[in-house]
């Protein structure tokens, strides 16, 4: 799934759309996707000027956005969803998220998000992120769907 399709599903836009490509998706269950860490991304100018690394909170946010794609596609394909309105999910909690190793400009984040337990409008997302063979982050998010 390309960036154009992703923009049909999510309300986020540059510079805060943090999913560049969706590589596989099982609607309502599991999704994998990529985020390319462009060396000229302004976030690296300040985080940190002499030691640029991707902020952990943005990695968690990217996982939340990717999870929203799996949830959005539960009720129709990309074009059907684009017609019916974009999925808006709000991050409700970040649970026991671990950042195992830093990611730098030029790295590609390979994210896998599985949809877990649901309770009314709250949904658990189980996240794992790596770059190449290196484990980058893992943890659970809770999102509230509107």
């Amino acid at each position: 799934m390309t960036r154009a399709d992703i923009e049909k599903l999510l309300p986020h836009r540059k510079p805060f759309l943090l999913v560049d490509e969706v590589t596989s998706v099982k609607p309502g269950q599991r999704v994998t996707g990529l985020k390319f860490l462009e060396p000229d991304d302004p976030v690296f100018e300040g985080h940190f000027p002499t030691d640029p690394i991707m902020p952990g909170v943005l990695i968690a946010e990217a996982c939340g956005q990717l999870g929203a794609i799996a949830l959005a596609l539960e009720s129709g394909d990309v074009d059907e969803r684009a017609q019916s309105g974009k999925a808006t999910g709000y991050l409700a909690s970040i649970n026991k998220f671990k950042f195992h190793s830093p990611c730098r400009p030029g790295d590609t984040l390979e994210m896998t998000v599985s949809v877990g337990k649901r309770m009314q409008s709250l949904i658990q997302l189980v996240c794992a992120v790596k770059t190449g063979r290196r484990k980058v982050a893992s943890g659970d998010l809770t999102v509230a769907l509107q």
Binding site: N95, K117, L122, Q124, A144
Partner: peptide, 13 residues
């Protein structure tokens, strides 16, 4: 609250 409720369900499981 409801977020705690989901966390509680997961921790009991």
């Amino acid at each position: 609250d409801s977020i705690d409720a989901l966390q509680l369900v997961l921790s009991v499981e």
